[in-house]
Every structure is written in C-alpha cells, then in structure tokens.
Design a binder for these strands. Structure first.
Length: 716
DNA sequence: GAAAGCGTGTTTTTT
DNA sequence: ACACGCTTTC
C-alpha cells in the first residue's frame, strides 16, 4: 500500500506533487497552459482513494465540457486500472441533471421532464412573443433569450426581479420571462440554466437533501474554474457547505469566456473567499519550446489583473516565432499552405487558428485549390441537425406528451395536413385552459371543437404517437429509433429536398439508430434507455467536426482551440480591429483578447507562425489595418520576420508624403514598378504600382507602423 | 407552399 | 460580400 501510494507521486514535479499530496483543506491550483493540469486532477483523486482519505462515493469531480469530463473519467480508470464506483464526475449540467432525475419530485418536476436545448428555447420564446402579441423587432427573440438566461445565471426568478426604475422594455421582458417559466413548468421542460438553478434551489430549500449531499461529497474537485459563472460558483459553495474540501483547478490567464458570463473574479478572489487555501502554481510547461513560452509570458504580463504566473521549460529554445506580413488574406492563406508543404509530415500536426469564423472561408478556398485535406471545427453538431431533431421530437413526445416544443416541431412535419390555423387554435386553447398542447388536442377532439380534415389528421397524429409508444415497450432502443424514422415517413420527407442532401440526412438517421445501441444496456442499471438517449442528445450535442480520423490540417477559432495542442500553429489575422477585435476594444475588454492571444500561442509545441494582412475584405469593404498590438508585445529577439531584410528608409519617417506619382519603387515581392495612382485617407496611404505584369495597391504607411512595404528607388 | 425580394447585421460558443 | 430571416408573390 505504501509503495502504491508513493508511486502515484513518481514522475510528478515538485509543484504537482505538492498539489496532489496537499493536506485536506481548500486547494487552488493555478495551472498554466501545458503544465499537466489534468494529470494533477487525476492523481489527486487516486491519491485521496489510495491513502484512504476518501472513499469513491465521497468524491465529486466537476468539469465544464463533456470533452473534459470524458478525458477525466478515462484517465482515472487508466491510472487506477478500474472505474471507481460511486464516484460522481461530469459537467455542471450533467451532474445537475443527474440530481434532478433522482429528485424530480422534490424539485417539482414531472418524472419524464425533458431538457430544452438553446435552439428549442429560442423557438419557445418566439412562440411566446407571438402569443403575447409583441413585436419581435422591439423584442428580438435572441435578446429575450439572453435576458432570461442571464437572470437565471444570476439566480433570479422572474418574480424576484425588482422592477423599481425599470423601463417598459424591461418590464415587458420580465413578464415574458414569467410566462416562459410558466410554460416550461406546464410542459415539464428544463433549459440549461434551469438545470443549475433548479438544483441550486432544490438543495438550498430542502435541508434534508442538502445535508445529505454535503455529508456525501467531502471532496469536490473543479476543473477550469476560471470559466464558472455566478450561479455555478454559488452551486458549488452550497454543495461544499462549511466542511467539505474544494480542490479548484484553473488559470485566470486562460479566462476567455467572460462574454458568456464566466467570472474571472471567482478564481482570482478564491484565496480571499476561503480561509486556509493552499495555492499551488504549476508553471513548468511540458508542451512548448522556450521561445514560444517566452513570447506567451511577455504578452500576458501586460495584463494588470492577474494572480501571476510565469511558464518555463527545461526543454530546448526551439525555433524563433515567425511573423509574416501578408498583403491580403489570400496571400496569408497561401503563405500558410506553403509552410505546411515545406514542413512536410502529417497534416494534422498543423493548426490554423483565427479570431472569427468568417476568416476560415478564404483559407478553406486556398486549401481546396492546393488540394490539401482540412477539417474545420465548429458549426452544426450531430444532435443539432434538423433531421435528428425531428426524429428526436417524435421520441420526446413518446416519452413526455406534454413537451410542447416537440409537439410544435412535428405536428405538421412531415406534412400531414394540419395547417397553421389549426395549430394556432390548439395553442389558444392550451394557453386558456393551462394545458399542454397534447392535452388541449384531446379536449378539443372530445368537445367536437375540431372538425373535418383537421380532425382526421389530428386523430391520425395521436394514433401515430401512441403506436410509437407501444413499440417503445417492445423494441430495443435502436430498433425503436428505426421504427420511429420509418413509421414517421421521414425518409420520404427528406427525399423531396434534393438527392445529396436527402442522402446525408438518411445516413444521419441511420447513425442515430447506431448511437442508440449504446444506450440499450442502461436498462440493466434500472435506467430508461430512451430517457438517457434524449438527455444525452440535449446535453452532449455531439462532435462538430467533419470526417474525423483522416489526416487533415485543422482549422478552428481560438476559442475552440483552448485545451488542445499542435506541433505547428498558424495564428492569423493579427490585425488591430480584428484581433484584438474592435468590439472588445470598444467594450474595454482588451485583457480578455490578450488572454485569447495567450491561449493561441500556448497551443503550439514546436513552431508558431503569426500572420497579419495589410488589407482584407471585411463587411464587403477592403479594410486596412495596422498589425495587432500583440505582435509588438513580443520581444523582437524571439521573432523572425519575412520583412527582416527590408531596409528601413531613414528619409521616410512618415512615408506618407515621401512618395509621389511617377516614383519608381522596389517591392520585395513584386519587384520594380512605377506609382500610377495614390490615395490616402486618415491613417493610411495607398499607392497603386504598375509592376511588370500587373498593377497592385500597396500600403505605404500606417499611422503607428514603422515598417514600410516598398522603398523608393528614384524620383521622376 | 415554394421562390424571390428585401432589410439587416456581421466575435467568440458550451451546456 | 454575404448570410439570415421575414415578407411578398404567384
């Protein structure tokens, strides 16, 4: 036993050991990028178990994303050689969901409550707006959605909001929030924020349950703590109570989700919030070269509000960072491609990272032209696809007839002759009588309110759902999925859309049946496979990457790159206004942009290329931007530049007025030419130069840019 | 009920 | 420039 335990510390560095073997008190691990954070988390859990300080059921491990949760679970099993039973690990939402499924009665939910994803939520809000007769120009659905979610994340129910001093918009939206809450309760629907809020209230208001879980979860480990929002932190505090131990892992320098409610203060003030906090910094980096780390440190050190940390490595210095000043976005893309080709090796060792997803298009086009395989991360995910959501909506109705969002989705899809008029009538009756739409239809048929073709169609629809429900009892889940798809005529429905599209949709539906197989054995644990599948679909929308497995160049936004690493990274679009993004500058969020840059830089193991364009199309207009300030924040001894050989022309401190029409210029890329046109406005001067075979617009000066792109050879 | 026209916004995205 | 969502039109 002794040996087992000490072997857990073998191969860890001093700081990691200190973290893993920390005494039982609150612990804050400031884990720099690439410093072995997951390793520490996993070893800490193993340490607690193997030293006998904790039994598995007393441990709760919380992560943010399903990816992190999966990795954590996998590595715990790997390290221990088995999966500890009774240990709870998962995402905030996953764990909240689990609690609500167990305590649905105490949480005042129907046993078969369903989860509303963001898309369902938005649709529900649209319908509510319409029902309230509100103009969706004045009350944009997305804004209303944001308002509601924000309230919930602040822990506020509609009735708790103070309307003192509120304007009419706020009053109106608060009313909408109230009717949204009522609708969800009526239909037994729970959105993402509700999962957390409902669990929070459940434990807060139910002493018996609260004490039970506080006594159970002695050890609470939290990953990516810098990403927690207000409610998530309150939720943790509630479960931790006065006597349990919080083991918090995070990195304030990698907080990049402030815009969606993450509170960097949560981690920054944690040592002040609790007494007896042991703080451990993991600063030794096992990922990147010293050059890359120095650049990362230099940039992030410009941020004022940090707990402070400096990455180091005992590895090699590595190559200098390479800065490329492209002429435009196509040049930028081609440069990246040429470097990937020159480097050779696997394509998947290369990642192209950008600030905004719009930047991917030009790069994608260049990759296609170069016939280089690539994969773009982001975009539509498996369970978000229309055909999947259609099929799932039928199943949701089977599981829970009162699910109005599912009802609305499939009441006339595929077309079954139930028009908007009829659906509206159902909505009105449901609202007036406080019923779900399914119940309303029942009543309306019995009372003979509905007649003719609508009646037949509605009866057929009811029968359809009941037929599906009967089969649910008889079939394995995967067979049931196939049955639902077939019986609901979904194939024929999509076939109308054109051949290739239909083919893809049908393949996805087959894949859904495939995925269902994985839930069939849940029945042995006393769980209902269908409920499990539906929850999974909402909580884990699936991967958003295309053809996995192939050797591809990887394209993604900087945000999506967090937590990943690549041998070679291309950071592109490093331009003022794009990165840092203008909106962030306007809102005074420069520090978060800088953290994003830090995240991007620290993704690279060996080579890092930083690109900026002198000009690019933005919003349909050619735009000229100065290089990003982040480039200037990297010490020049760490960088090489393609313009390194460009002589600086002393005579032209402001090249703006040093050039005239007719001047002969030498340009490093295009050779010799003559200035034939000139325009300059504000900070910029551009000239059109006629080269041997083409004319090019070039930038001669930026207001704050020392580098010039062309030098004057002679005057004429 | 589909196609065409119009107006508008356009950072980042997980659960 | 371009994509979207909504309205108009046939």
């Amino acid at each position: 036993m002794e040996d087992d335990v000490s072997s857990l510390l073998d191969g860890l560095n001093t700081a990691q050991r200190e973290a893993v073997a920390a005494p039982l008190t609150h612990v804050l691990i400031l884990a720099g990028a690439g410093s072995g954070k997951t390793r520490v988390l996993v070893h800490r859990i193993a340490w607690l178990l193997q030293t006998g300080q904790a039994l598995a059921p007393t441990i709760l491990a919380v992560t943010f994303t399903n990816r992190a949760a999966g990795e954590l679970r996998g590595r715990i099993s790997e390290l221990l050689g088995h999966t500890p039973s009774g240990l709870w690990s998962g995402t905030f939402h996953g764990i909240a969901h689990r609690l609500l499924r167990i305590h649905w009665r105490e949480a005042q939910l129907p046993e078969s409550f369903q989860i509303l994803d963001s898309d369902d939520q938005l649709r529900a809000i649209r319908r509510l707006l319409k029902a309230s007769g509100l103009d969706d120009k004045t009350y944009p659905p997305r804004q209303v959605q944001h308002f509601i979610n924000q309230c919930k994340e602040q822990g506020n129910r509609a009735h708790q909001l103070s309307l003192a001093g509120a304007n009419s918009w706020q009053i109106q939206v608060t009313e909408l929030y109230a009717s949204y809450e009522q609708m969800c309760q009526q239909s037994g629907l729970v959105d993402f924020a509700e999962l957390l809020l409902r669990t929070y209230e459940l434990l807060r208001d139910n002493e018996e349950l609260r004490v039970h879980y506080q006594n159970r979860f002695r050890h609470i480990l939290v990953d990516e703590f810098q990403d927690t929002n207000f409610l998530q932190y309150e939720w943790l505090k509630l479960i931790a109570g006065q006597h349990n131990y919080l083991f918090i892992v995070g990195d304030d320098d990698q907080s990049i989700y402030g815009w969606r409610g993450a509170r960097i203060e949560n981690i920054q003030s944690f040592p002040k919030q609790y007494q007896n906090v042991i703080m451990v910094r993991l600063e030794q980096n096992y990922r990147s070269t010293a050059m890359i780390l120095k650049a990362a440190n230099a940039i992030i050190s410009r941020n004022e509000h940090r707990l402070g940390k400096e990455l180091w490595t005992d590895g090699a210095d590595g190559d200098p960072l390479f800065i490329y000043s492209a002429y435009n976005e196509e040049d930028e893309a081609n440069f990246i491609i040429s470097k990937i080709q020159a480097a050779g090796g696997a394509y998947q060792d290369n990642a192209i990272l950008y600030r905004t997803s719009a930047q991917s298009r030009v790069i994608e086009e260049a990759l296609i032209k170069a016939q280089m395989p690539y994969r773009i991360f982001g975009g539509m995910r498996f369970y978000e696809r229309a055909e999947i959501k259609d099929a799932l909506a039928f199943m949701r109705l089977v599981a829970h007839r009162d699910d109005d969002t599912a009802f609305e989705r499939v009441i006339n899809t595929p077309k079954r002759g139930i028009g908007e008029r009829t659906v509206e009538n159902i909505r009105v009756v449901a609202r007036q009588q406080g019923l779900s739409m399914w119940q309303a239809v029942n009543g309306m048929i019995q009372n003979g309110v509905i007649k003719g073709r609508s009646l037949n169609s509605l009866v057929a629809f009811q029968k359809h759902i009941e037929t599906l429900a009967e089969q649910r009892e008889r079939l394995f889940l995967s067979q049931f999925v196939e049955f639902v798809v077939k019986e609901s005529n979904l194939h024929a429905h999509y076939q109308k859309e054109g051949k290739e599209e239909a083919q893809r949709r049908i393949e996805n539906l087959d894949e859904l049946a495939n995925a269902a197989v994985g839930f069939e054995d849940r029945a042995q644990e006393g769980l209902d496979p269908l409920t499990e599948l539906l929850a999974h679909a909402a909580l884990e929308a699936g991967t958003n990457q295309g053809s996995a497995g192939e050797d591809c160049v990887q394209l993604m936004t900087l945000h999506l790159a967090k937590g990943l690493e690549f041998k070679r990274v291309f950071l592109c679009g490093l331009e003022e206004g794009l990165f840092p993004h203008q909106n962030s500058l306007d809102e005074g969020n420069l520090e978060e942009e800088r953290r994003l840059c830090y995240v991007g830089i620290t993704r690279a193991r060996e080579q890092l290329y930083l690109c900026h364009c002198e000009t690019r199309y933005r919003y349909g207009q050619r735009d000229f931007s100065a290089p990003s300030r982040f480039l200037n924040e990297i010490p020049s001894e760490l960088t090489d530049s393609v313009r390194l050989n460009t002589p600086k022309v002393k005579a032209h401190t402001g090249a703006r007025d040093g050039f005239q029409l007719g001047d002969r210029v030498l340009h490093e890329k295009y050779g010799e030419g003559v200035i034939v046109d000139q325009e300059g406005q504000g900070e910029f001067t551009r000239v059109q130069v006629a080269f041997a075979d083409q004319a090019k617009w070039l930038i001669l000066s930026y207001a704050r840019m020392e580098r010039i792109t062309a030098i004057k050879l002679s005057q004429r």
